[in-house]
Computed example of a mutant assay.
Amino acid sequence: MRLTVPLALLSVLCGCGGGGTATPPPAPTTCPIPIAKANPTFAADLLPALQSSCGSAATSCHGGAAPTGHVSYSGTPSEVHARLVNVVPASAPPGGGWFLVKPGDPAHSWILEKVTQDQPGGSGYGTRMPQGAPNLCQPTVTTLSAWISAGALDN
């Protein structure tokens, strides 16, 4: 009798969740934007792409409050935008005019350097991102560059 009540309660609780199966999180990808976008927005296009290919969970390189990857993609779009735009990177060569994202200037945006160069900034400044994964696909890189060229708006 004691075992019957907990089992009945468990079956009721599991039955209330829409079948009892959880939707698995999407798999990480290095092609989160498979078709380049000419007018991307940060919140709808760029941040989800960065989170899916670079991480935002506390256990990822770019997640949590103290990320090992020097910048966190965790938080609201405005919080992440503030940590990226017009911010001097911790790991870029000095004197290069680098910013994580320099609005209107993809050539001095460290984020683009990091995802397009095997030795970003020259030897000694890390490796191409995402580390340990295939390179970002060209449509994703093109979309990121278009957003930066258009002023890297918090939209």
Results as ranks from 00 to 15, higher is better:
129 M>E: 13
119 Q>V: 05
53 S>G: 13
43 A>W: 08
3 L>E: 02
121 G>E: 10
142 T>C: 11
131 Q>F: 00
141 V>G: 11
118 D>N: 12
86 N>L: 07
37 K>Y: 06
124 G>L: 05
36 A>Q: 10
120 P>S: 10
88 V>F: 01
19 G>T: 09
22 A>S: 15
31 C>H: 07
121 G>K: 05
12 V>C: 11
123 S>E: 13
95 G>D: 03
127 T>K: 11
113 E>P: 00
46 L>C: 12
120 P>C: 10
74 S>W: 03
154 D>Q: 15
14 C>R: 03
127 T>R: 04
87 V>I: 12
92 A>K: 02
73 Y>W: 13
46 L>Q: 07
56 S>K: 05
85 V>R: 02
20 G>K: 10
69 G>C: 12
108 H>F: 01
33 I>K: 03
139 P>T: 11
103 P>M: 01
76 T>V: 10
85 V>G: 08
58 A>S: 15
10 L>C: 13
74 S>I: 00
142 T>V: 14
19 G>M: 05
75 G>T: 09
117 Q>I: 02
54 C>V: 05
78 S>Y: 03
81 H>P: 07
154 D>N: 15
21 T>F: 14
149 S>M: 11
29 T>E: 08
72 S>F: 00
118 D>H: 04
100 L>R: 15
5 V>C: 03
25 P>S: 09
93 P>R: 04
49 A>D: 11
80 V>C: 02
121 G>I: 02
12 V>N: 08
120 P>I: 01
124 G>I: 06
9 L>R: 09
41 T>S: 15
11 S>L: 15
138 Q>F: 07
89 P>K: 00
112 L>N: 03
11 S>M: 15
5 V>L: 11
61 C>V: 02
6 P>A: 10
47 L>H: 12
90 A>H: 04
111 I>C: 04
38 A>I: 06
84 L>P: 08
81 H>T: 03
72 S>Y: 02
137 C>R: 10
40 P>R: 06
